[in-house]
């Protein structure tokens, strides 16, 4: 390559790399390493266990609580690149201990970033919310005809309660 072309190429490359670097820094700031998020958002997301099965093997960098004055609240870690895509978790800290860890971002098979905090995942029957049937006032199910089972179950309840 001629000298002038080499110089120009070097300059242009440095400019491009610098722009990329700058964008990367900004993205990092947005993701917020150890930036406290509103506790309201934290509790809304943190009412349930994060499903560990959803992030196979990826090592999410959970924001470790600062060693000094133990903060309280919900903190969002930076998004970490795994082979499945970006993973981001938030931790809820109360009284100096981690009380909840929630995965905020995961990618599905198509590489799309999804908020997994509300996806329907496989559960065992024992894991579902349940109560004794006696304490249930209403039975829900697919639409039934007047000859259906449910009506009798419901009417039994109705009779029992009225």
């Amino acid at each position: 390559m001629r000298k002038r072309a080499s110089a120009f190429a070097a300059l242009a490359s440095v400019a491009v790399l610098a722009a990329g670097w700058e964008l990367g820094v900004q993205a990092g700031v947005q993701a917020g390493v150890l930036s406290p998020a509103g506790t309201a958002a934290g509790t809304a997301a943190g009412t349930s266990d994060s499903s560990g099965a959803a992030s196979p093997g990826g090592a999410p960098a959970a924001a470790a609580p600062a060693a000094a004055a133990a903060p309280s609240g919900t903190f969002t870690g930076s998004a970490v690149q795994t082979r499945f895509g970006p993973v981001q978790v938030s931790v809820t800290i109360a009284g100096g201990a981690i009380t909840d860890v929630t995965a905020l971002r995961l990618t599905d098979r198509d590489g799309k970033s999804v908020a997994i905090s509300n996806r329907a995942a496989p559960v065992l029957r024992e894991e579902v919310l349940s109560a004794q049937s006696a304490s249930v006032q209403n039975i829900g199910g697919a639409t039934y005809t007047t000859e259906g089972y449910l009506q009798s179950l419901q009417s039994a309840l109705d009779a029992a309660n009225f």
Binding site: L129, S130, A131, G141, L150
Partner: peptide, 17 residues
């Protein structure tokens, strides 16, 4: 108010309360 969701495979049973 507690509601039960019927188990479609076992009509007398309830999946969740």
């Amino acid at each position: 108010w507690m509601s039960g969701i019927v188990d479609p495979l076992h009509r007398g049973a309830v999946l969740a309360g």
